[in-house]
């Protein structure tokens, strides 16, 4: 994780690893489809009086999603597109970031940095028929009191921790709640 911070704002480049979810795998081969915008995603925001904030978590959310898919499905692999590229898979899992938000302690009058990431998760058959279209709203926060150190990276470290918690929350939500969504349940029943 690379941190740069000044008097206000911070630049954070997330580089973490994510655990494999401990859930009963869905018995299908899933192709994971994400685009360059997803893999290179960064939240940038200028907050009046508190500087410029940038947190790059595209690579981290790609790793998070790959781990989630590895735990959630019997088999998971990255694919490059729909159609022929997806024919090897039973289902295609497509993920996009709908929006992201950060809150700094000065805005919320709390001790916490907060990060919200909203994802659009789609499950599609290789030919394109939609099985599931689901919005996942992930949340993470970090208590600044855990990052009180001499030096200038305090805000960056706290923001990175909040982002990491939000990404873990996204993985947890997908792993626990995707199998319960009506769309996938109906599709699995029809497949039997």
């Amino acid at each position: 994780m690379l941190l740069l911070a000044g008097c206000g704002g911070a630049q954070v480049d997330m580089q973490g690893s994510y655990p494999l979810p401990l859930v009963q795998p869905i018995p299908v081969h899933a192709g994971l489809l994400t685009d360059a915008a997803f893999k290179g995603y960064a939240h940038e925001e200028s907050i009046d009086g508190y500087g410029d904030w940038r947190v790059s978590f595209g690579e981290d959310q790609q790793r998070m999603l790959e781990q989630t898919a590895r735990g959630l499905f019997a088999r998971a692999s990255n694919i490059t597109g729909m159609g022929e590229a997806a024919f090897d898979a039973d289902l295609v899992l497509k993920a996009n970031v709908v929006r992201s938000e950060i809150s700094i302690p000065q805005q919320t009058q709390t001790e916490f940095f907060e990060v919200r990431i909203v994802y659009r998760i789609e499950l599609l058959e290789p030919h394109g028929r939609e099985v599931l279209n689901w919005t996942v709203s992930a949340y993470g926060r970090s208590d600044t009191r855990n990052f009180r150190v001499l030096g200038s990276s305090e805000s960056g470290a706290a923001l990175a921790a909040a982002t990491r918690t939000a990404l873990r929350d996204a993985s947890a939500l997908i792993a626990r709640q995707l199998p319960m969504q009506p769309g996938i349940q109906t599709w699995l029943q029809q497949r039997r």
């Binding site: 655990p19 494999l20 401990l22 949340y139």
Partner: peptide
């Protein structure tokens, strides 16, 4: 522990 039991001991769950 949290990594090995993920996602069961995450804040939400």
């Amino acid at each position: 522990f949290k990594d090995r039991t993920f996602p069961w001991f995450e804040p939400r769950f």
